[in-house]
């Protein structure tokens, strides 16, 4: 039994490693593929923790892009305006969104799903106004240019690829481990029924706030990486649409599994690379989204593939001193 548990935790990580290696090989053949693979990795980093928060814990968030923007602006300001080293600013880029999220989480996470969705998207819009108006720090609409590439990593595209995919692998591993653990069980109970979770001893507010904060921190890291990779950060770079798209990736890919968000991120990136024209893209893409949401609401990697619906081989013998006959057994 221990082995099956380990395997189910490791196998998504192996699959992701496989994806990363395949993309790297393709990237060596055609360098432009590295750009795609880094984008997929970036989106996956934003989508994975949301998958844990929403798919397992039932708390929706449309703020992932917003927290990434906070992380990106933080490092842009600290490195460009104050001359910090990118690794020093990394701490703030991760810490600031995480703390911010933790502080605002309590009132938010009590809200019903629909309400939470609207509140988080409003938050992102507030962030955006702040970025646009705090001109002295953020450069207003024009944003901040000339953000230095990361030392070593910034030199070669393949390094960027491996940096971001290593992060994805780590996050995916942690996600899978958490779900396997007793705390993952408690998290699942929160989604199914909050009263059940509370009555079995889970501090629902703390559990969700921690995860909300964690996903904001990871988004901050992704934003940090993005700012140094692109070298430029403006309020429009990571806008509310991105936040919505991240949620779409989670839902389309399959919100209940580890692989879902990554599948969603990949499809999303590939679709926007392959679909013709930038202006008409929204039409094709939006329609596709609607079709999938209506006809496959559980996403592509659906719960049928989940671990616990598979019956394990072991059976447990009935207790010996069974009195009477059992009539019903479904």
């Amino acid at each position: 039994m221990t082995r099956s548990v380990r395997l189910s935790r490791i196998s998504p990580v192996l699959i992701i490693l496989g994806i990363a290696i395949t993309l790297a090989i393709a990237g060596e053949v055609r360098p432009s593929i590295y750009a795609t693979s880094v984008t997929i990795g970036f989106f996956s980093l934003l989508a994975l923790p949301l998958g844990l928060l929403y798919g397992q814990g039932g708390a929706i968030s449309l703020a992932q892009g917003g927290f990434a923007a906070v992380g990106a602006f933080t490092t842009a300001i600290l490195t460009v305006k104050f001359g910090w080293s990118p690794f020093a600013s990394l701490v703030v880029s991760v810490g600031l969104p995480a703390i911010l999220a933790f502080v605002i989480a309590r009132p938010l996470l009590r809200l019903p799903e629909l309400s939470l969705a609207l509140v988080t998207i409003s938050l992102v819009m507030i962030f955006k106004v702040v970025f646009e108006r705090a001109e002295r720090l953020t450069g207003g609409y024009n944003g901040i240019t000339g953000i230095a590439p990361l030392p070593i990593i910034g030199v070669e595209r393949s390094y960027a690829h491996w940096t971001v995919w290593t992060a994805v692998l780590i996050v995916a591993y942690c996600y899978a481990s958490y779900v396997e653990s007793g705390r993952g069980r408690a998290l699942n109970a929160i989604r199914v029924d909050r009263l059940l979770a509370e009555s079995t001893g889970t501090n629902v507010a703390l559990e969700l706030s921690s995860l909300f904060s964690l996903s904001a921190g990871i988004a901050g890291f992704a934003g940090w990486f993005y700012a140094h990779y692109i070298g430029f950060m403006a309020p429009d770079s990571l806008d509310p649409t991105l936040s919505a798209n991240i949620l779409f990736m989670v839902v389309l890919g399959g919100r209940k599994s580890v692989l879902g968000p990554i599948v969603g991120a990949s499809l999303f990136t590939l679709a926007s690379d392959l679909l013709p024209g930038t202006v008409t893209q929204g039409m094709i893409f939006g329609s596709l989204l609607i079709v999938i949401l209506v006809f496959f609401p559980d996403g592509i990697v659906s719960p049928g593939m989940m671990r616990w619906t598979r019956r394990r081989a072991t059976t447990i013998p009935e207790a010996k001193n069974t009195p009477g006959v059992r009539l019903e057994r479904a």
Binding site: R9, S181, G184, A186
Partner: peptide, 17 residues
Amino acid sequence: LGYTPHLAQGRLACFLG
């Protein structure tokens, strides 16, 4: 699920598996 109050390991240990 009933064991939740008695989980010996913290969140970090669970994340690290």
